[in-house]
Design a protein around this nucleic acid. Structure first.
Lengths: 358, 358
DNA sequence: TAGTTTTGCTTAAACGTTTAACCTGTTTTT
DNA sequence: AAAAACAGGTTAAACGTTTAAGCAAAACTA
């Protein structure tokens, strides 16, 4: 056996990868036995297992994932699609998905849609091509047509959506309570003494933004504030568009005394405009964002925002996927997890604190 | 043929995936012919090719990537390891790597080390396990031991490092000219009238940070400024540590009139401290960061920084990988690409502009 | 018209695992 | 002591492609 081993160690240096067969040859047993030994099959003796593992180590054996995936019909790869990774929200969701799935032997492939529907479709193709066992996705702003997602469903692999995507696809979804978040924001602003509250919202066709708009409208109603359609604006929610829409609000004869922006990025654009025009936040206009991106605590003034519990969303998304793959196709009940969000009050809307400063 | 097709279309609904054999059966040809037809092999007639492609479409055929990867011995997957994805620098690098590689039929698997050496090793194992054709990485702050990277090298797959990692591994590297960047910064600060320039730098064992330190020291020398060791501080460069190190500098009897921080994040921490203590930037103390993260333009005052050309780094890293896989193992010359960086002057160090404001 | 080349396939093996089915020798049961 | 159970394997097929080698028929060549 020692001679055999050293012969194989030579082979190692030729850069050809060690296979199960090499180990089998060294020990003069079958490849099947090696496979079983490595998986701690009960039909293999402890002695053999030890020997196999030792030789595997010596030969620097790395299992060929492609081969086993092919044989087993599953790749242990999960595809993740996000609009972009450079927002803290998505990057945190991803990190938590990864953490949960790694523990169960899954790896993730991250792809970015850059908010483009076309790229998103390409990503789906890519992921299906790579034989992922499932897809966890948050949709691009542009995405209206769901044909491509139907394609995933029809492949029979789990599809889990989070944040953007609670559409009519009838798939698992994890997100926060957008409707209630809007209520929290509006009520907070009313408490601060605001009476003309504007809302720079996202596209209505995206469920989450639509829910924020509904929440905004209903909260106004609840507190007997009139709904002024001039104060309800649809936006792409980029920094740039946040600037534009804020500028538009400032041209109104009857300016708002508070602006609730459905995204921190657009809120940042709004903040820049207000700062440039020396409009005091929160006393002239109070500002609230959405998402609790780290920069909301860095800018001047710091921006009040909604914490979306990104870590929890990521964990739940991963767990939902695991449930799906473990259960048989039957007995599947739809998972819709709606987490409570949290309002983080900062200087841009805290009139009490700002009064003390004066 | 029509009967056969409809029979197979039924099968489609049973969710079993269509294979090359199914197509072969429908057309009554061999699976090999189908494979060749799909790859436009010259030995297959146009007529057959058309028929194959048509049937493939009808049956919604998706090639099994695992099988072809196994057979061909390559996965067309490239692993990417970064400390984290939620900095703009890394996320931009990744995006550009992806763009270049997608065009050539490669997909990428992104993993994060969270600045942990242990996680980084786990990531490498994961990627090797997934049979990636190459690895593009930027090392964690913690990483000193290079054993794991040697492992990658010994597997014979291309390893390309960028930003953090120009170590003694003797592999391809893409980065910016850190030494010169320090010169640019120091000279800019001297131009602004600063005479006591501090440097909050990174760990010396990381080449890029060491180069920044050397550049700082040499630039001082060049302009006949004394090197005060109290003003040269080593830091982990997080926001938190930036705060700490700034506080330490403020306790000095002889305070600096400028602070050059080797990372925007730590610079942000420093900025917060200065703002809290009502120390005017740039007049009392000028501040310069490194990395040109978007938030440097968002905070008050905006922070002068170094643009690292992340997009170009990503593109070059991807191209270097492509070169490696295309060339035979022989005839490989080491690629070291050092890009020129660019100083972006903002309010935190622009005394001229700030004088005008007064 | 026999010989050569070309066209357009087919056959079969291979990639590295996993796993159902089988086999042999030993131990336990009755 | 014969039957049953078990331990510890082995064999062979399968996963879905790709590809080298082979082969028959058609088309060209001399």
């Amino acid at each position: 056996m020692l001679k055999r081993l050293s012969k194989y160690i030579k082979k190692l240096n030729t850069k050809k990868k060690t296979t199960i067969k090499d180990i089998a040859n060294v020990l003069n047993i079958s490849a099947a036995a090696v496979s079983k030994a490595l998986h701690d099959d009960s039909r293999i003796s402890e002695k053999t297992k030890k020997a196999v593992k030792q030789v595997a180590k010596n030969l620097n054996y790395q299992p060929n994932h492609l081969a086993s995936a092919l044989r087993k019909g599953k790749s242990n790869l999960v595809g993740v699609i996000v609009p972009r990774t450079n927002s803290n929200f998505f990057s945190s969701v991803i990190q938590n998905i990864e953490e949960v799935l790694n523990k169960e032997g899954y790896n993730i492939i991250i792809t970015q849609s850059n908010e483009s529907y076309k790229k998103e479709c390409a990503n789906i193709d890519t992921l299906l091509f790579t034989q992922v066992d499932g897809i966890i996705a948050s949709m691009a702003n542009e995405t209206i047509d769901l044909e491509y997602y139907e394609k995933v469903k029809s492949k029979g692999i789990p599809l889990i959506l989070f944040d953007r995507g609670e559409n009519d696809l009838n798939v698992d979804y994890i997100g926060i309570d957008d409707y209630n978040s809007s209520h929290m924001i509006v009520e907070h602003l009313i408490e601060q003494g605001c009476k003309r509250i504007a809302h720079i919202g996202g596209y209505k066709h995206t469920r989450i933004f639509n829910n924020r708009i509904k929440g905004y409208i209903d909260a106004l109603k609840k507190h007997d504030l009139p709904l002024d359609t001039e104060l309800l604006i649809e936006s792409s929610l980029t920094i740039e568009d946040g600037r534009k829409k804020m500028l538009r609000l400032l041209t109104l004869k009857n300016r708002p005394d508070a602006v609730y922006v459905a995204s921190d990025y657009a809120a940042l654009g709004a903040l820049q405009v207000l700062n440039e025009q020396n409009i005091n936040m929160p006393n002239d206009i109070a500002l609230v964002g959405f998402g609790d991106e780290p920069f909301t605590a860095m800018v001047t003034p710091t921006i009040t925002s909604i914490n979306q519990h990104s870590a929890e969303i990521g964990k739940q998304a991963a767990k939902t996927f695991l449930k799906r793959v473990k259960k048989t196709a039957a007995k599947q009940t739809l998972n819709k997890i709606i987490l409570d969000a949290e309002l983080v009050v900062r200087d841009s809307s805290n009139t009490k604190k700002s009064m003390m400063h004066l």
